[in-house]
Amino acid sequence: MNMLTETAVEKVLERKMTNSALKMSGTDVCVFYGEKQALHNVNLNIRENTVTALIGPSGCGKSTFLRTLNRMNDTIDSCRVTGKILLDTDDIYDPNIDVVELRARVGMVFQKPNPFPKSIYENIAYGPRIHGLARTRAEFDEIVESSLQRAGLWNEVKDRLQEPGTGLSGGQQQRLCIARAVAVSPEVILMDEPCSALDPIATAKVEELIHELRANFTIVIVTHSMQQAARVSQRTAMFHMGYLVEENDTDKMFTNPDDQRTQDYIMGRFG
């Protein structure tokens, strides 16, 4: 009896400690595409001002989990999500939650750079415009400049803000997309393999950017590159066949993982 209360108290304490730093948390998250179940009871916490990397072989459900965090799965007709995902204290799958507001708080950067066929300026101003974050031209100018500054793109494009965003190089386009996401001042930024279409130099720039963004944002990144996960993240979660295999500090994960499958994957034995 005494023992039981003691462990219970310990558990509560532990949860309190971690909760203070928690930005998002998923509890028993299951995702179905039609009849097929893509995610099985995932429990994963995302800490504030931390880069969390999701790794695992193709088709393991890491991208699916990422997309549940800002309900991008809603755009797929056959997709169904059960379980609970909290952003701070709000259940994001609550019917009363406005998905538009949610996505303003949880931004997303995609695998392939997808600038709109508009000018660089308009690409950045798009989000602030639809959310009414600025009113005057000067306010927009400021948001555009600061977002591009934060994405490390300002010096490269400041003289050609009116040129189409599609005319930039692949790496610049991806940083433009990051700047576009930053411009809405989200709390969390989700990145779905943001460097898979980029060359090593552009990749290095984006990784450096992720480091800097960590100070102001909570970042979740899906990546296929073990080195990238090791370089940019503090926490790593390993998915396999729709299950969360292990979640740990990145340092521990890559030196002394708890799970055999994680070790195999990191060592390159499968996936």
């Binding site: 755009t75 538009v100 989000g127």
Partner: peptide
Amino acid sequence: VPRALRDGSLGLGATRSE
């Protein structure tokens, strides 16, 4: 029109209509 553009806009919190 590529799906990526739709996702990009929706991911920024735009509605379908926007």
